[in-house]
Amino acid sequence: MRWLWQGLTTSVGTKFLMALTGMFLFLFTVAHMVGNLQVFAGPDQLNAYAAGLKKLGPLLWVMRLGLLATFVAHILCAFSLVKRNEEARPVQYAVKRPIAATYASRTMIMSGLIVLAFVVYHLAHFTLGWTHGDHFALRDAQGRHDVYRMVVLGFQSPFVALSYVVAMVFLGLHLSHGAASLFQSMGWNRKKYSCFFAGAARGLAMLVVLGNLAMPLSILFRLVGQEVTP
């Protein structure tokens, strides 16, 4: 296995890991958004979806641990690359002007760290129930975990909703570069379809952001779940 370790710890190899884990995480955000958009289909649909996920039992844990491992690997690769890149230029320019580099491409570590902080908060909010324990403990008429009321009550608070909105802007920034960049890193990109990859990736990233923004904003402005009161 030495060949694999040696091959993947080079600058090019680490980017393979970055791209593959990033692609997996990107696809997860798409699936996550599609699942959660069921909030618009009403309490019964969303609570049934959540109960269905819980029923997967051991499979759910395989998925959770796989996701966690991918997330951790993505972060470790990022830190390794940042360290390598910072060491490569110990003295900075007095004047440096980007020529073609987009804002998103130059700020991946910043947007990534903001998304990391958000994920920690998001898990504490909806998965672990640490920040709003009273919302987390709610049960619906059938005795299921009342995800619908938990989400609605959470997003009725302007501070909570706003933090999600801000996080989604940075997630969008991160994905708009990462989703197109992974094709280049993996060597799948060719000139003749680079505009397709970049366009499709940015489009899908935009879709994830808009879908995820629709939930907190529609609840905050009482378009959805106005019947729910604390």
Partner: peptide, 12 residues
């Protein structure tokens, strides 16, 4: 001691 690629395309 060169860095890795972030695909910003300032090089080209």
């Amino acid at each position: 001691g060169f860095g890795a690629c972030t695909n910003t395309y300032d090089c080209e």
